[in-house]
Design a binder for these strands. Structure first.
Length: 424
RNA sequence: GGGAGGAUGGCCGAGCGGCCGAAGGCGGCGGUCUUGAAAACCGCUGGUCCCGCGAGGGGCCCGUGGGUUCGAAUCCCACUCCUCCCGCCA
């Protein structure tokens, strides 16, 4: 949620920022709603002050005086009864506008509206691997190795569900441990969070109301299945005021993620590139406003380190302003080269949400001088396990279909397991 | 699924319908004392919104939402959440 007072102070800045999302006119609608609300606040508060004054006098007054005062206060109360609903309506109108308005993009986010407009920041290790044979895609490899079963996944649960089998399960767990070890070393507190959350948490993180169609809802209990552990990690400090000395607070969440993938019909069908359920290790940071940009760079660097350890060719892209998620002011994606698709595909994503999420979550920082302000939140993928498995299979495959597992994973794997071998 | 309690400030905990944004304690900050520290003593110690350049003034907040009343932390209604016991269960 944007800060209305900041918009009031410098509307031009917000107009220009939101124009990059094609939403320049939102500023004027917000300002009009804010003006109306403040006018009503002024009038209602004057009446309440008058009512309070008179009521206090009544308490102290003698009986004959009392009747007269009660009559006077009745007139004030009548006015209040009329104005209070108007004030409430004006407040909701403003809240709805603000809830539907996304964050202002950072200056360093490039112009544009689609993934095509993202700007490449850097690549790792230059070129994608050259194969002296025709590389298979992960679906073919998964079948050959006997480690992926999408047909039975569909039978049990529908399309976009997959069974992971055999040694690939050990690779998944190794990826999880590998990421958590690095994050713990970097000062992140490991967390296994709840994956069902209340509406408040979904709203606070900005997934509701805008992303509703992509969220699984448990009607009976009024709970939502999280699409990322960003949600319960952000909600961890919902409504709290953190001490400046305790920042940054860094968390590494490991959870299963659930996504309806509505509106992606026909996209990335087959295999497990786009599925309804996958596991992910996620970074989440609560920082002071002045340090969030440094933290953002640091988190991307951690992502690069993790992917580098897995010996995967990747590139970092800076997402276009108009293509950002609603809460983000800036986002880096890391795209990994997939030989099966002959292109780079999104593997991780790292966003600085500045104060947008924190204001909705009411998460603030108490400065050492005692003042209180909204803090900044960031989130980033440490390892999206499903897609990382795909990248490992496709990039480390050999002519016979076997797959060599990256050395950095060896300590986390069973000793016999260094290569995934095709089924006999 | 059945039953019983509870929700007040960073934490614990009091609170006759008006003098209660709220006693007291703990914690925190500052000070006195001390070579230093502890102890003791003294003082300070909520958030938010509106008006104002500021000094300051005002509104709201005792789980949430309604109601009664001139006036509600206190009375009434509904809801939510938490805890405990029994049952079931990974």
């Amino acid at each position: 949620m944007l800060d209305v007072r900041a918009i009031r102070d410098d509307p031009e800045r917000f107009r220009a920022g939101l124009a990059r999302r094609n939403l320049a006119d939102a500023v004027d609608r917000i300002l009009a709603a804010d003006e109306r609300r403040r006018e009503l606040v002024r009038r209602v508060e004057e009446l309440r002050a008058e009512q309070n004054r008179l009521s206090k006098e009544i308490g102290a007054a003698a009986d004959e005086e009392r009747a007269r005062l009660i009559e006077r206060v009745a007139a004030v109360s009548a006015d209040l009864k009329r104005l209070e609903p108007e004030l409430e309506a004006a407040g909701s109108a403003l809240d709805e506008l603000l809830a539907a308005t996304p964050n202002v993009p950072h200056d360093s986010a490039p112009d544009g509206f689609t993934d095509e407009d993202a700007v490449e920041v850097r690549r790792n290790h230059g070129a994608p691997p050259a194969f002296d044979f025709e590389p298979r895609d992960h679906t073919a490899l998964g079948a050959l190795l006997g480690v992926l079963d999408t047909e039975r996944g569909a039978r049990a649960s529908g399309s976009r569900f997959v069974y992971l089998l055999g040694d690939l399960v050990f690779v998944q767990l190794a990826l999880m441990r590998h990421a958590l070890d690095i994050l713990a070393e970097e000062g992140f507190v490991p967390v296994i969070p709840p994956v069902l959350v209340r509406e408040e948490a979904m709203y606070g993180t900005g997934f509701l109301p805008t992303d509703e169609v992509n969220i699984y809802r448990i009607e009976q209990d009024g709970l939502y299945l999280v699409g990322t552990s960003e949600v319960p990690l952000a909600a961890f400090h919902m409504g709290e005021i953190l001490e400046e000395a305790d920042l940054p607070r860094l968390y590494a969440g490991y959870s299963t993620c659930f996504r309806r993938e509505a509106g992606s019909y026909g996209k990335d069908l087959g295999g497990m590139f786009r599925v309804h359920q996958f596991d992910k290790v996620e970074m989440f940071a609560f920082t002071t406003p002045e340090s969030s940009w440094d933290t953002h760079e640091r988190m991307v660097a951690i992502e690069e380190r993790i992917i580098g350890n897995l010996e995967l060719p990747f590139r970092v892209v800076n997402i276009a302003a108009g293509d950002l998620g609603g809460s983000a002011a800036k986002k880096y994606d890391i795209e990994v080269w997939l030989p099966g698709q002959q292109r780079y595909r999104e593997l991780t994503s790292c966003s600085n949400c500045t104060d947008y999420q924190a204001r909705r979550l009411r998460t603030r920082v108490r400065r050492t001088d005692g003042s209180v302000e909204v803090l900044h939140t960031l989130n980033g993928t440490a390892t999206a396990i499903g897609r990382t498995l795909i990248a490992i299979l496709e990039n480390h495959q050999r002519a016979d279909g076997s797959v060599a597992l990256p050395e950095r994973l060896h300590p986390y794997l069973p000793e016999r397991l260094r290569v995934l071998e095709p089924r006999a």
